[in-house]
Amino acid sequence: MKIGSQTIQLENTPKLLQTASMVGPKEMDGPLNQFFDLHTDDVFLGEKSFEKAESKMLEQCVNHLLSKAGMNNSMIDYIFAGDLLNQCISSGYAIRNLNIPFIGLYGACSTFCESLALAASFVNANYGKNIIATTSSHFCSAERQFRMPLEHGNQQSPTSQCTVTGTGAALVVPNSSSIHSLYITHVTFGKVIDFGIKDMTNMGAAMMPAAYSTITTHLQDTKRKLDYYDAIVTGDLGILGSELLVDQFQKEGYDISHIHKDCGVLIYDKEKQDTHCGGSGCGCMASVFSGYFFEQLKSKKMNKILIVSTGALMSPLSIQQGESIPSIAHAVAIENEV
C-alpha cells in the first residue's frame, strides 16, 4: 500500500530469510573481514578477464546463498540483480547458468536497495514466494570502465573513493509463523536529484542530496522520528559525503551522528589502506549489509535499521559531454520481530 509521497508500506511484511556475501582481497584486509562468508585472494578468480571474474563472484555468492538457505535454484521464483558494467553483463552472464527468471536492474551504486525493495514488493504482492536480490561490483572492471587503465601511473584525488570488489545476495520470502527472521516493513524509492556536481572523483558530494531527500521523505511518509531507528545506513557516501549528510541534518536541527553509518566508510581502514574517502560501488552496500548488518540484526545488537543505498547516474560519456552527476537513493526499512 502506498503511503505518503514515495513510500510503500509492505502490509504483509515479507521476511528477509538469509543473506550471503563475497569479497576480494582488499576488503578482506579491512576491518569487517570476519563478517564475510566467502572471499577470494585472486582478483581474476581464475578467469581471463575482470568482467568474467565479477560474474563468477556473483554466481558463487548466489549459490552460497542457496546452500545457506537449504534451497536449490528451481525453488527461486525471480532474481533481481544489477551491477555497474555496461548492459549489466556481470549479472546477465552470472545468471545464465542459474536457470532462474531474471530481472536486470541499473541504479548505479543504489542498485542493492533497488533490487531488495522490488524483491520485497513482489513477495508482499504474492507474485512469488522465494525471491533473490543481489548486486556486485569489481574494482578492476569498474576502474577500466569509468576511469583510467590500472597500469596508468596517476594520483587519486583526496575526495575519490575506491570501488569495492564484492557482492551480496539476500533471499526474501513471505511471512509465516514458522520462519523466525527479519521483517521488511517499508520501502521508499527516491527521486533523481542533481546539485550540479561535475567532479567524477567526488561522488560522495554528488550523492549526499539524494540520500538526504530519500531519508527525510521516508520519515515524513511513515510519520516516524529519526530515533525510531537504531541505525540509518547509507551505501557509499564515503567520508566526505557522510560528513555533509550529518551537517545537513544538523542545519535542520537534528543530530544523526550517533546513528548514521556508511558502508563505504566501514569497509576499509582509511589510514592503512590508502582508500581516500572510502569504498563505493554496487558491491559495497551489498557485501557490508549481507555480511555485517545482517549479522548485527540477527544477533539483536540492532533491531530497526533503515538502509539507504545511493547511486550516481552518470556515465563516462555524459561527464565528457560536460553534464553534471545526477544521483538517486532508495531506502528499505528492516526490523527484528519483537
Binding site: 550540479g196 556536481i197 531527500s213 527525510t216 520519515l219 515524513q220 566526505l240 537534528y254
Partner: peptide, 17 residues
C-alpha cells in the same frame, strides 16, 4: 523536517569545496 536542501547549485558546490 525539510525534505529539500535549501541551496542553489553554486552554493552547494562552494560549500562542498
Amino acid at each position: 523536517m525539510n525534505t529539500n536542501i535549501d541551496m542553489s547549485n553554486k552554493e552547494y558546490s562552494d560549500y562542498v569545496e
